Simulated assay, not measured.
Amino acid sequence: MKYTQRKKAILLLADGTIFEGKSIGIDGTAFGEICYNTGMTGYQEIFTDPSYFGQLMLTTNAHIGNYGVNENEIESDSIKISGLVCKNFSFNYSRDNAQDSLENYFIKQNLLAISDIDTRAVVRYIRDKGAMNAVISTETDLGVLKEKLKAIPDMNGLELASKVSTKEPYFFGDENAPLKISALDIGIKKNILRNLANRGCYIKVFPYNSTFEEMNAFQPDGYFLSNGPGDPEPLVEAQNLAKEIIKNDLPLFGICLGHQVIALANGISTYKMHNGHRGINHPVKNLITGKGEITSQNHGFVVKREDVENHKDFEVTHIHLNDDTLAGMRMKDKNCFSVQYHPEASPGPHDSSYLFDQFIENIQNSKK
Rank of each mutant, 00 (worst) to 15 (best):
Met1Phe: 07
Lys2His: 12
Lys2Asp: 14
Thr4Gln: 14
Gln5Asn: 13
Lys7Arg: 14
Leu13Val: 07
Ala14Glu: 15
Ala14Ile: 00
Ala14His: 13
Ile18Ser: 02
Gly21Ser: 08
Ile24Glu: 05
Ile26Trp: 03
Thr29Ser: 12
Ile34Asn: 03
Thr38Gln: 08
Thr41Ala: 14
Thr41Met: 04
Tyr43Ser: 06
Thr48Trp: 07
Thr48Met: 08
Tyr52Pro: 00
Tyr52Thr: 10
Gly65Phe: 05
Tyr67Asn: 14
Glu75Pro: 01
Glu75Arg: 05
Ser76Tyr: 14
Ser76Arg: 12
Ser78Phe: 04
Val85Ser: 07
Lys87Thr: 09
Lys87Asp: 15
Phe89Gly: 08
Ser90Tyr: 13
Ser90Leu: 07
Asn92Leu: 14
Asn92Trp: 06
Tyr93His: 15
Tyr93Phe: 15
Tyr93Ile: 04
Ser94Val: 14
Asn97His: 14
Ala98Glu: 10
Asp100Arg: 00
Tyr105Asp: 11
Tyr105Cys: 11
Phe106Ile: 05
Gln109Ser: 06
Ala113Arg: 11
Asp128Met: 12
Lys129Cys: 05
Gly130Lys: 11
Met132Ser: 15
Asn133Ile: 02
Ile136Phe: 05
Leu145Ile: 12
Leu145Arg: 09
Glu147Ala: 14
Lys150Pro: 07
Lys150Ile: 09
Pro153Phe: 02
Asp154Thr: 12
Leu160Lys: 13
Ala161Lys: 05
Ala161Phe: 01
Ala161Val: 06
Thr166Asn: 11
Tyr170Met: 06
Gly173Asp: 02
Gly173Thr: 03
Glu175Arg: 12
Leu179Pro: 02
Ile188Ala: 03
Asn191His: 13
Asn198Val: 00
Ile203Pro: 03
Phe206Asn: 10
Asn209Cys: 08
Asn209Leu: 10
Ser210Pro: 08
Ala217Thr: 09
Asp221Pro: 10
Gly222Tyr: 09
Gly222Asn: 11
Asn227Gln: 15
Gln239Leu: 04
Ile246Asp: 04
Asn248Met: 01
Leu250Glu: 11
Pro251Thr: 10
Leu252Asn: 08
Phe253Arg: 06
Phe253Gly: 05
Gly254Arg: 09
Cys256Asp: 00
His259Thr: 01
Thr270Pro: 00
Thr270Cys: 15
Lys272Met: 06
Asn275Thr: 03
Gly276Thr: 00
Gly276Ser: 04
Gly279Ile: 00
Val284Pro: 00
Asn286Thr: 01
Lys291Val: 05
Gly292Ile: 03
Glu293Ala: 11
Ile294Tyr: 03
Ser296Pro: 04
Asn298Arg: 08
Gly300Tyr: 10
Asp307Met: 10
Val308Tyr: 11
Glu309Ser: 11
Asn310Met: 09
His311Tyr: 03
Ile319Pro: 07
Leu321Cys: 12
Lys332Asn: 14
Gln340Ser: 07
Tyr341Trp: 14
Pro343Asn: 01
Pro347His: 02
Ser353Asn: 06
Ile360Asp: 01
Glu361Gly: 00
Asn362Leu: 14
Ser366Cys: 02
Lys368Gln: 08
